[in-house]
Amino acid sequence: MLKIVVCVKAVPDPKEAHKIKIDPATKILTRSDVPFVLNLVDKNAMEAALQLKEQLDAHITILSMGPPPADNIVKECLALGADQGFLLSDRAFGGADAYATAYTLAKGIEKIGPYDVVLCGMASSDGSTEWVGPEMATFLKIPVVTRVNEIVEYDGEWWKVKAGLENGYRLVRVKLPAVFTVTRDLNTPRSLTFSGIIKARKKEITQWGIDELAVPEESAGQKGSPTIISNLATIDSKRTVEIITGTREEKAEQLVQKLADTGLI
């Protein structure tokens, strides 16, 4: 049986994330009630796992690190068809950078047990580093392929995948177990179904803290993070805007005139 671990992250809803701002005076993030949702490209990782499960004899485990309310995105993945879920949640995990996150997730994967494939989204919409997949693979001492946009062969110990490059791709042969970070091009994620949500009632989410994971305190969260935020600055990219008004036709005409003045059109 193919054992798949899908790593997912709860991120502020990208549709509302612009509401989170830095207060220019206090340099503290303004409080906001932006809801947390499943990171968009993680849905593609989830979909890849589900499609593999439809083709092969596979078992899907969801792993996430985050505060306790993040269990709703784990639940969502269970409702989509995953078999079991784990949430790594502890105050000590807070403030982790990509390095500490990858380390903690790797510890989680090791504790879950034997695995063949680890899937995750290429990047999270809030962090956007793309580091967690490769760093996790490093800690697990297994290969990684980033930006996978097609799984070409998936039977046996060696898989063949296409990974995105600037204006192209590379075709890569990789030996399992391995980590794959996936792009939005890989597939079209399915939607939640009511019956899936009902089936998820019986699926368990196990929560592990720092003690269960046996991660040393100095390796977790902010303490385990090589990087820190040293400053928050507001920026002044302001230009004085001239709003062009009038009917649609008039606006277009005036704008063409402005563009013509640049001599570029």
Partner: peptide
Amino acid sequence: YGGLLSIICPE
């Protein structure tokens, strides 16, 4: 977040 973060790796 509409501003600039400075990130360092102190150690």
